[in-house]
Design a binder for these strands. Structure first.
Length: 572
DNA sequence: GCCGTTTTCGGCCCGACTGTTTTCAGTCG
């Protein structure tokens, strides 16, 4: 089993945890954490990069030492220095730091004074009342630790973005009813449109803060008030979702929005840039000495450090600051750029709506075309079509298009990629369609090599236009297939095949890094919703958000083009 | 441990809230 990037990242994070407990140089600790983040952000396995003679030292935050450690991990699967460190410090201690309110110092203190190593030790000590006796700890801290250990057992998953959106809307509507409220905005990873959201960060402009804080913490769904201050409060809802509210003055609005939108890594990089110009950035503004020189809008903040506005979706410290500095930010795709949807089902197979209703919904989206891509016969559970079924499908759409005016329904199929890489319908049938989306549905747990070969084989077929949901992952439920995306993309580019960004909220597959990779490798992307109902077509906005996170412009995405250009591009 | 448009050494982002501290350390984001 080759070493995955997550394995390297996890070893570096473990190093950071243990060094931190050991009270090592905090910047050294940070170096390990930064490296872990860099590695897990990479679109392809580090092992492959090494095999291709790429130097890890070219990566940001990776120097000579860490590059050697990476090589060691790739070759041996372990890091000798971590093994040594684990002789000095009990490795289980790092897990204790995941308890809310426990950081390296307290974990070390608990270990030294009470011999606490495991979560069970911690719980027992808290129940016995042993912790409150320790210097620096008290009754309240002990209570919090006891509660935190308990709460940790059923820690909530990160919410899919679309669910976070619902919660955010509810909370914004509630806060808008607070006395003296002037403006409420959602920041954080939600605003950056990350595929999952861990907590909600809400910013508030109001006349007086205390009544807003009272209103907020009195919400009927609040399970626990974690903290409540003059300008900042945190609660946990009964659903387990954490919500932070911060009250900010108007003159600081832009600086605060920037600050609380993050990502943390992006903010650190921007503040560092500010330092170089003798400026200081915090959530209240941009300061030269004591003088506030910017902060009312985010544009002001960026302008103060000589940068153009950077859209939230790009703020991950993945090169956007450098690109902005060089005036090389991508002109990001928008929902308005989309001219049609290329993956949808009707009730002929497993969809819920008729062709007519799907078209009506697509027209409402402002589209010029919609592809109906029914399942093929192998997907029996969905009532997939055989050759005869496809003939009926084609006839139905031809008939519909005769009276559809300026709107066109495209004849597509979602063709199953069989275990051996063959397609689930004969070529002479496939030839009668406008285009084909080819997807893996079964045998999802083949080895990485076999899965990759399978998809490459499918792409050999001249009728394969689009690879549907290329990694098969279901967010939070099913991991991606083990495919070598580098090879898939290379082949897609060579064969003029497109990769789907499936916009369904459970999938969002390609992910953001894959989109970025497609852009860099000049592979065409389509954004499709895989709609099974009329309302599913609205998932397009999630797909577009993901594409923006992956730096895609309209020109990178096939279904921003006119029908003529689209069909021409499919012929290869 | 990384890094360099004043640097190969000496820096490394910044502030709110809490609890136990009587002036601040720890944690968090």
């Amino acid at each position: 089993m080759p070493v995955q990037n997550v394995d390297i990242a996890s070893i570096f994070n473990q190093m950071a945890d243990l060094l931190e407990i050991q009270d090592a140089n905090p910047f050294r600790v940070r170096a390990y954490r930064n490296a872990a983040r860099t590695i897990s952000d990479l679109p392809r396995p580090v092992g492959d990069m090494l095999a291709d003679n790429e130097d890890p030292q070219d990566l940001p935050g990776i120097g000579k030492d860490l590059a050697e450690k990476i090589e060691e991990i790739v070759q041996t699967g372990r890091l000798a220095q971590l093994d040594e460190l684990e002789q000095e410090i009990a490795p289980e201690l790092s897990a204790l730091m995941t308890v809310e309110g426990l950081g390296p110092k307290r974990v070390q203190a608990l270990h030294a004074a009470l011999g606490i190593r495991t979560m069970d030790d911690l719980q027992q000590a808290a129940e016995k009342g042993a912790i409150r006796e320790l210097g620096g700890f008290g009754a309240k801290t002990e209570d919090k630790i006891r509660e935190a250990v308990k709460a940790r057992r059923d820690e909530p998953e990160r919410l899919k973005w679309i669910l976070a959106e619902q919660r955010a809307r509810d909370m914004v509507a509630y806060l808008e009813k607070a006395p003296g409220i002037q403006r409420v905005e959602v920041a954080g990873s939600f605003r950056r449109c990350k595929e999952t959201v861990g907590d909600l960060d809400l910013l508030v402009i109001c006349r007086k803060a205390p009544p807003v804080m009272d209103h907020f913490t009195a919400h009927e769904d609040v399970d626990e008030v974690v903290s409540k201050g003059r300008t900042r409060s945190t609660v946990v809802l009964k659903t387990g979702l954490q919500v932070d509210v911060r009250v900010i003055p108007k003159v600081s609005y832009g600086a605060a929005l920037h600050y609380f939108t993050g990502s943390k890594a992006h903010n650190v990089a921007v503040r560092k840039r500010a330092q170089g110009k003798d400026l200081k950035i915090n959530e209240y503004g941009v300061f030269r000495g004591d003088e506030r020189i910017a902060g009312r809008s985010e544009e002001d903040v960026y302008r103060a450090v000589d940068l153009p506005y950077i859209p939230p979706e790009l703020r991950e410290d993945r090169g956007e600051i450098e690109a902005a500095g060089n005036d090389a930010l991508p002109d990001l795709i928008t929902l308005e750029d989309m001219r049609g949807d290329l993956h949808a089902h009707t009730k002929v197979t497993d969809g819920k709506a008729s062709l007519e209703d799907m078209v009506a919904s697509a027209r409402k989206q402002g589209y010029a075309y919609l592809a109906i891509t029914e399942h093929s016969k192998r997907v029996t559970m969905a009532g997939g079509l055989d050759a005869q079924g496809v003939a009926g499908h084609i006839a139905r759409i031809d008939r519909f298009n005769q009276s559809s005016g300026d709107f066109t329904v495209l004849k597509g199929m979602e063709v199953d990629i069989l275990k051996d890489g063959g397609l689930d319908l004969p070529d002479e049938i496939l030839a009668q369609l406008d285009f084909r989306v080819c997807s893996v549905h079964y045998h999802q747990n083949l080895s990485g090599d076999r899965q990759t070969e399978r998809i490459l084989k499918a792409m050999q077929n001249p009728y394969c236009n689009i690879i549907g949901h290329p990694t098969g992952r279901l967010i939070g439920e099913r991991p991606p297939y083990e495919v070598d995306m580098q090879r898939i993309m290379k082949a897609a580019r060579d064969k003029g095949c497109f990769l789907e960004l499936n916009a369904h909220p459970d999938r969002l597959d390609l992910n953001d890094r894959h989109c970025r990779m497609a852009r860099d490798m000049e592979v065409g992307v389509v954004i499709s919703t895989d709609a099974h109902s009329t309302t599913d077509l609205e998932f397009m906005r999630l797909g577009v958000a993901q594409a923006r996170r992956g730096w895609l412009s309209a020109s990178d995405v096939l279904n921003t083009r006119s029908l003529e250009d689209l069909l021409a591009a499919m012929k290869h």
